[in-house]
Write a protein that binds this DNA or RNA. Sequence first.
DNA 1: CGTCCGCTTGACTCAGATCAAACTTGGTGG
DNA 2: CCACCAAGTTTGATCTGAGTCAAGCGGACG
Lengths: 194, 194
Amino acid sequence: MDVQELIDRLGNQARVERFAANNLLFRRGDATRSVFGIVQGQALLRRYTVEGTALTIHRAFAGDIFAEAALFSDVYHCDGEVLAGTHVAQFPKLALQNLMQNDQVFAATFCHHMASQVQRLRSNLELRSIRSAEDRVMAALSLRLREGQSRLELNGTWKGFASEIGLTHEALYRALKRLQAGGRLTRSGRVVEI
Amino acid sequence: MDVQELIDRLGNQARVERFAANNLLFRRGDATRSVFGIVQGQALLRRYTVEGTALTIHRAFAGDIFAEAALFSDVYHCDGEVLAGTHVAQFPKLALQNLMQNDQVFAATFCHHMASQVQRLRSNLELRSIRSAEDRVMAALSLRLREGQSRLELNGTWKGFASEIGLTHEALYRALKRLQAGGRLTRSGRVVEI
DNA sequence: CGTCCGCTTGACTCAGATCAAACTTGGTGG
DNA sequence: CCACCAAGTTTGATCTGAGTCAAGCGGACG
């Protein structure tokens, strides 16, 4: 499930808004009103340490749904900020809860969505404990291959891919170069073959 | 929600089994029969790259529920192996699905559990992009503090904590030492004060 | 036509990994 | 109750590979 699907599903109960400048959607401790989604742009979820420094606990990009936990909590547990130029979809908590209660199929879909998230996040987390850049890149690419395939096209940019897997773009490009030199993959543009 | 809760809830439909030696619970492509939980010990979820090397995509420890996605898929997408001496709880997919359909409260609890997982995993992932060992340790500890508290007791060992946050235990101990020297935290045994 | 941004490569640095070893601690079983 | 073993804790020395800074290229887009 993705933002657009949820917008379609909720109809006029969903509201999409564009923020020209950086904007706080909610603060930690605020009563939870909505779950959110990014249509375009980026949002940051933050908490503050005892020492007072900001701590980013999540970065949401186009297509992502975030603050789902609002459905099950009375207050937000972090600050939510959208960056300038971002289009945000708001999904009222009550509307979502109603929908889930009255529509078993939707409830299952939503649950499925979260189970998939858990799966993806867990494997991304394991990925990060692969220290070698080359091995990490190979592993990350392998996980994105469809069963039986050996070729894939990147969704975003290589730079974006680098930050998704926790490497600087320089380290990524060098790793790719070595992998190509070693004959472990070939690529042209955003298409890779392993 | 934790394994024990699910065992209690499912009653005699849940089965707990002890494996003396390493054992494959399921293979990628097998029809999904159950969701699992660890009572004691450890399980590994694995996939294989095109090159044939094993790739750990998740490590489950005591208390963890895993392979939840089995509820929404016809086949497993990875191999599931338990290590020697592990006590595993099996939750039949059908029993769980029935429970979720007939008991709205349980369904909500289960959904809540997954939303919390997503939250935790996302922040752990963000944590990994903090390069400095000291900062990463402080951030990880801060996230484990209860609101308003400044002291906490570790659940597991420091060594376990190190691998949770993606550091070697040596790097962790050295970071802790520097943090203590810098007066940013104090600790005795498994109790820390920030 | 110019600007922005992704891409690519080079040189250098340094923090964390690795290897090694000693010491605690806790639990087990005789 | 003590001997013993396994595992966690702690510190040292060394090394390596990813980060950082820097700079040039090229394509997209207004």
